[in-house]
């Protein structure tokens, strides 16, 4: 009996905590349903008499939101694909082979996380300008895939470390080359980690603003964060539109996270240290 009461207690605590956690997210939805002028209100209600979906109509019908969305999907898709391919192969090399420079590579991957990203912008720009990649998705994709890579490689390496080497040895005995053993046997087993890697690569590109702002100049090419930011003017932000945009931008990532949350728990192996 006491156990039941305890469970009930913990359960209600968690429900309350979850609601509190969700409040800011709901708050954006609330703002998106208000008019610009009702932005400052003392009401805590998310839905008021004045609420409407007007901002959403404006967003989709009167702005280039759909184009931005299409662009963002395109960029994120390619980045995700590249990220997964590169992280899965190099993570594998780092997990399975004891080659010269392996330790150096692993440490420098961690080191890359330590340098303030702001200061990388200027050199990025100079590099892209030299390569004539300004205002092209290629430049953006290279930067996005590479910046997400160090973490993803660590992540993949951590996961491979948990897979017994006998598995690909068995495959090689069965007639696979090293590469086909990797593709046919190891990759399918690593799907939880691949999903996580994909998710992180996707996130890295989906909501990135700063780099996109220096690389993309043609409004036709804008990605969602850039478009969203254009609703924000220093002295006259269209808050309703902005919030509606923010909600729509957040939906795909949130859905992805929710649907993949079970992989998150099993596949996130930043920490998995091989004993």
């Amino acid at each position: 009996m006491s156990k039941k009461i305890e469970t009930l207690f913990i359960f209600s605590f968690l429900v309350l905590f979850t609601l509190a956690t969700l409040y800011p997210a709901l708050n954006i939805i609330g703002i998106s349903l208000r008019t610009d002028d009702a932005f400052q209100t003392r009401s805590l209600a998310l839905w008021t008499a004045e609420s409407s979906f007007r901002s959403y109509f404006t967003l989709f019908l009167e702005t280039d939101f759909l184009t931005w969305m299409k662009n963002s999907f395109l960029v994120s898709f390619v980045v995700t694909l590249t990220g997964v391919v590169l992280a899965s192969t190099s993570g594998y090399a780092l997990s399975r082979f004891n080659f010269m420079g392996r330790r150096a590579v692993l440490s420098s991957l961690l080191m890359t996380q330590m340098f303030p990203a702001t200061m990388l912008l200027l050199p990025f720009f100079i590099l892209l300008a030299k390569l004539k990649l300004i205002n092209s998705y290629l430049g953006l994709i290279i930067i996005y895939s590479s910046t997400a890579l160090p973490f993803c490689i660590w992540q993949m390496k951590g996961y491979y470390d948990t897979i017994p080497a006998a598995l690909e040895e068995a495959a090689r005995m069965d007639g696979c080359s090293r590469f086909s053993a990797f593709i046919k046997v190891i990759l399918p087993v690593s799907s939880p980690a691949l999903v996580i890697t994909a998710l992180f690569s996707f996130m890295a590109s989906w909501s990135e603003y700063v780099v996109a702002a220096i690389v993309l100049q043609d409004p036709e090419l804008y990605t969602l964060p850039l478009g969203l930011k254009s609703f924000q003017a220093s002295l006259a932000t269209q808050w309703g539109l902005y919030a509606a945009g923010a909600v729509v931008v957040s939906i795909p990532v949130t859905i992805l996270f929710i649907s993949l949350s079970r992989f998150l728990v099993s596949g996130l192996t930043v920490g998995s240290v091989k004993g």
Binding site: T89, S90, A93, P123, F124, L127
Partner: peptide, 25 residues
């Protein structure tokens, strides 16, 4: 060879996007 080849593309990407800017800085 196999390990190095697997590592190469990621290495190039990270090199250009992180190591080069780092050196520049």
């Amino acid at each position: 060879k196999f390990a190095y080849l697997m590592l190469l593309p990621a290495f190039l990407g990270i090199m250009s996007v992180i190591i080069f800017p780092f050196g520049y800085n």
